[in-house]
Design a protein around this nucleic acid. Sequence first.
DNA 1: TTGTACGCGTTATCAG
DNA 2: CTGATAACGCGTACAA
Lengths: 350, 350
Amino acid sequence: MADNNGSGGSNITIKSIAKEIGLSFSTVSKALNGSSLVKEETRASVLEKAREMGYSPNMLARGLRKKTTKSIGVIFNDVENTVWIRIFKKISIEMAKYGYTTLIGDGQFDQNIERSHIMSFLSRMPDFVILSPSTASTDNLALFADMTDRLIVLGERIPNINCHYVDVDYATGGYMSASELLENGHTDNIIFTVPPEFPISTQYVQGIMRAYSEYGVPFEKERLIYKHTSIDSGYSSVMDLWDAEKEAFSIHFTGVMVFCDLMAHGIYKALRKLGKRIPEDISVIGHDDNPLSEFSKPPLTTVCLPTEKMTESCLAIIKSVLIDDNKEICHYFLDPTFVRRESVIQNSKC
Amino acid sequence: MADNNGSGGSNITIKSIAKEIGLSFSTVSKALNGSSLVKEETRASVLEKAREMGYSPNMLARGLRKKTTKSIGVIFNDVENTVWIRIFKKISIEMAKYGYTTLIGDGQFDQNIERSHIMSFLSRMPDFVILSPSTASTDNLALFADMTDRLIVLGERIPNINCHYVDVDYATGGYMSASELLENGHTDNIIFTVPPEFPISTQYVQGIMRAYSEYGVPFEKERLIYKHTSIDSGYSSVMDLWDAEKEAFSIHFTGVMVFCDLMAHGIYKALRKLGKRIPEDISVIGHDDNPLSEFSKPPLTTVCLPTEKMTESCLAIIKSVLIDDNKEICHYFLDPTFVRRESVIQNSKC
DNA sequence: TTGTACGCGTTATCAG
DNA sequence: CTGATAACGCGTACAA
């Protein structure tokens, strides 16, 4: 790959301003950094000159020296998922006020890609990392061994890794979803969720199973379909269930639970294409509450992730560590809420 | 702010592995960088040892030295807008394959915030920057003076700045929107767009005016409402138009053009709240084609941004510059397409 | 083929 | 109060 020999940042440095003003560069450095060891009037002239020349410090050099880069890293699985990007957007905006820049990496539900993002981040020394892991890979998380006190794992809890956690009670989400369907007489349901390597998926399913058991309905594992979450995967997953010859689904169901709203909308699309009405023929419940889910036809009943609290919790931790120099590890465990809209209806056969 | 004295990246360096293996660190450096000036078997042992010790190069030091950081910077106005994030996601994922990390900054439609992102980026020396500008601020763009050949401005064209451009024909988007409405007999329309400091907004409006003039319908400037784009701003903008006492809008309209789908959905929400039916009472046309717009009630007729081509064009430029070391400046000018769905209907009064 | 010396732009320590 | 000097980790001429 060709070396890029552009000038990088502006090529005016503390040295060049020192020469310009007739001082040693170390004095200039002090002046710029608000050291009290420098005369007020020389500081003033340095500041003046720096502004005049358009100086901005080279964060690479500073980071190399100070071991702090004023940057935070963020890794998660689908940058396109509004629910998650919304959380990181707020964090990024808030931290930007303190001069922090955000590094972002899309893990794409792939452990190896996630790993390469982690490596890349580590070599850039962000002051803090937030990770919504692709899977509960202890291997990948172990790469953060040197900075567990500056790492938040979002939405999962990984054994043996003692870092900050902002966790969501996905079991309750699953429980609420299943209860709603069961309560409305839907006992034949399909569940679309991410692969079981994701502990969040397992939790979700456990919550569902708990509801089934409370309602005395047997839970059939073959009704569990593991897919990554996207509009397209929702669409194709449903189409895969369709038996074109019989003009019917290969498995009977009147209810659907989906671990991601985006995916639910893909399911909507497929269902509509197959001539199924929502909710008259099929009831659907999503998960995460995408900002646009209230506008769909019909508005999607879903489990709302506590995004505000997740954001606040992350920020509380980051500021506590980065600004207040606090050392203690925090664990948050947040509850989702249920948003009843119009995609679930009483089972007509009851 | 407290200094963070964590170890940063792993604290094993070429020095430590050199000591461990009994070589000078420069030999280690060469071995690691695939220099041909090192014996194959020593390279092998170095690589082995490096892997064993879990070495990863410090990109700060490397960047300081090589003036290339294997990172790209991205600045745009609403990270939450799926249409834009989708473009940057693809770019980020593609560049990640080449070892590039992405810096991201949300400009929030604010020139000063944008400026601080630019400064922050510059001091981190990204190899390439993509900017979807908050406004056509030549001042902000001028900060990139040293790297115009490694800058893409997305969606606008700024006078006097000779950088790469990937531009979209917003005028045509406006023209198509207005034509559709006019064709369906809607002559009383409201236009929601971003403030006129954004050239893209001006272009959009010019396209609309062209359609009006072709249809011989006078264009009234007071029907232009300038707002930033978000679901909430769409909602509140419509509510602001409502006269609660008269129980009617303070200005009569049967059609709405919106410069952003997200905002259109906020408008949907407000209209519905006010008891207006879409499209029976009010026809709505969006802009940008959000992935979820086809699922709304009713599915939103909109102008589809050529996101695929935008992505491809950006990648073509970046790779050309970064990988093929190409020096020439590129300009792309892309056409949007019109997506007719169900939010526009013939004006009942016609 | 390997090692030495220097510089990238900063900050920090220690003399002056 | 100011100015040399070392160090951060790495890459690269140049010397061995």
